[in-house]
């Protein structure tokens, strides 16, 4: 195989692997006839748990400018919709970088 066809097959294999992660949860959970309350509580926490795990390291490891901008955006995000939060985070980080923070 040429290097390029290896690349194509690797991409396609990655696509299949990703698709499996997207159907597996559904397939597994629909096999249960009864979902115990504690499992249901865990499933209800999935959005907060997974998305927090994705975001949190940015507060710590992405530089002090990002930390400050995210904290400001966090405070504002409790009151305003997401588009505002994006705008304020972006303006904040640009401002901080402009002033050399």
């Amino acid at each position: 195989m040429t290097d390029h066809s290896v690349l194509i097959y690797t991409i396609l294999a990655a696509a299949v692997a990703t698709y499996i992660t997207r159907i597996a949860g559904y397939v597994l959970i629909t096999r249960l006839s009864h979902i115990p309350p504690r499992l249901e509580a865990a499933l209800s926490a999935v959005p907060a748990a997974v998305l927090s795990a994705l975001v949190a390291p940015h507060f710590i490891y992405a530089g002090v400018d990002v930390t400050i901008a995210l904290l400001v955006a966090l405070a504002i995000g409790f009151r305003l919709p997401t588009l505002w939060l994006l705008l304020i985070a972006w303006a904040g980080v640009m401002g901080l970088r402009y002033f050399g923070v």
Partner: peptide, 15 residues
């Protein structure tokens, strides 16, 4: 400043 958009967006989702 584009690197902040994705974490900020995910934070909005968490909220």
């Amino acid at each position: 400043g584009l690197d902040i958009l994705l974490p900020a967006y995910f934070m909005g989702l968490v909220l």
